[in-house]
Nucleic acid binder design. Structure first.
Length: 212
DNA sequence: CAAGAGATCATCT
DNA sequence: GATGATCTCTTGA
């Protein structure tokens, strides 16, 4: 019996019969644990134009107001408000006048933290992704936070969305924990000593990360 | 392949 | 008024 009403058509065939939508307590764990455990899980986006699914291959952790790389280190503002709220909600922000980035809020209320989803391996809805991204090349569809949001039609309308609901969520298809790598986060040179923290996580050997 | 410029705007000073 | 958790394109070796 599939209580989750989400049969696992997305699985790569190596796992269980049914997918489990990650529940809120998953996101209430420590941010580093969430960032690591999201690798190998499946990001699902439902849209009127169709569904897109990708295997998460790269994440970054942004951990609390002391982390100078975290947007919330500048305090509680209209923009960062969502990171201070309950875990399992989307924090989507607009950057460089062009792109969106998708985060999922983690940990307890009033502890501002989130995991940035940096890259996925396209699995389902690939034609739709190609159309949105205006490229035919598979490894250019979602290999970066801005590209991913374009391929999955993620914009400010999803800011604050409940990631335990039906529009945007993450599934566990029972894939065994992949071998991972950690390294410094990308694009945070301004963050002083915090820029060295090895809080970027990748699936080892994946062709679909934003950079080696 | 590596390096650099430019695009463009919400947010915060 | 400055800047950024990015990307694409161009240039030049």
């Amino acid at each position: 019996m599939n209580l989750n009403n989400s049969s696992c058509a997305n699985c790569r065939g190596n796992s269980s019969d049914f997918a489990l939508k990650l529940p809120r307590p998953f996101y209430e764990q420590s941010t580093l644990d969430v960032a690591r455990q999201l690798l190998g899980k499946y990001l699902v986006r439902k849209h009127l134009d169709g569904m897109t699914v990708g295997r998460i291959v790269e994440t970054e952790a942004y951990v609390g107001s002391r982390d100078k790389a975290c947007h919330a280190s500048r305090g509680r503002t209209k923009r960062t408000e969502i990171m201070f709220g309950p875990a399992g909600h989307a924090y989507v922000y607009f950057i460089y006048g062009f792109y969106y980035c998708l985060n999922i809020v983690t940990e307890a209320v009033d502890y501002p933290s989130a995991v940035l989803i940096r890259a996925v391996e396209p699995l389902k809805g690939i034609d739709l992704m190609k159309e949105r991204r205006r490229t035919e090349r598979l490894h250019k569809l979602a290999s970066g936070p801005g590209k991913l949001c374009q391929a999955f039609a993620i914009d400010r309308s999803l800011n604050g969305a409940d990631v335990c609901a039906n529009l945007l969520y993450v599934e566990d298809c029972g894939e065994p924990a992949p071998k991972t790598l950690a390294g410094p986060r990308v694009g945070v040179d301004y963050a002083g000593k915090w820029k060295h923290k090895p809080w970027r996580f990748l699936i080892r050997g994946s062709e679909f990360v934003s950079r080696p």
